[in-house]
Simulated scan of single mutants.
Amino acid sequence: MKITFDEQILARLADWSNADLVLDFDNTLGETGRPVEGCSIGTNYRLIAIAKGTVPDVFDIVIDSNFAPLHFKKYGEMFLENGMTITENTDKRVQLKAAGEVIDSNVQILDYRQIK
Rank of each mutant, 00 (worst) to 15 (best):
I86E: 06
Y45C: 02
L23M: 09
T43N: 13
T4M: 09
V107Q: 00
N44M: 13
V94M: 02
I61A: 07
F25E: 03
P35H: 07
G100F: 09
E88Y: 09
I50F: 03
L47W: 01
F25I: 05
P69R: 07
N44E: 12
L47G: 00
A99L: 04
T28M: 10
K52S: 00
F25W: 05
Q108F: 11
D15A: 14
Q8W: 08
L110Y: 11
A98E: 13
V62E: 11
T85S: 10
T32F: 11
L21N: 03
S65R: 04
K116Y: 10
G83A: 10
P35K: 08
V107H: 02
Q95T: 06
A99V: 02
I61S: 04
I9K: 04
E77M: 14
C39F: 11
K97Y: 02
F79C: 07
I9P: 06
L13K: 05
D6G: 08
D104W: 05
E77Y: 10
N106D: 14
V62H: 05
P56D: 00
S105G: 15
G30L: 00
G33R: 01
V58P: 04
V22Q: 03
K74G: 07
D111S: 12
D60Q: 09
K92R: 15
R12I: 04
I63V: 12
N106Q: 14
F72A: 03
D20L: 04
D6T: 11
T90A: 11
D24C: 06
Q8N: 15
T85M: 03
D24T: 09
H71E: 07
A49M: 08
D26C: 12
Y45V: 00
F72M: 09
A68Y: 02
I86N: 03
T43P: 05
Q114S: 14
Y75R: 11
F5Y: 14
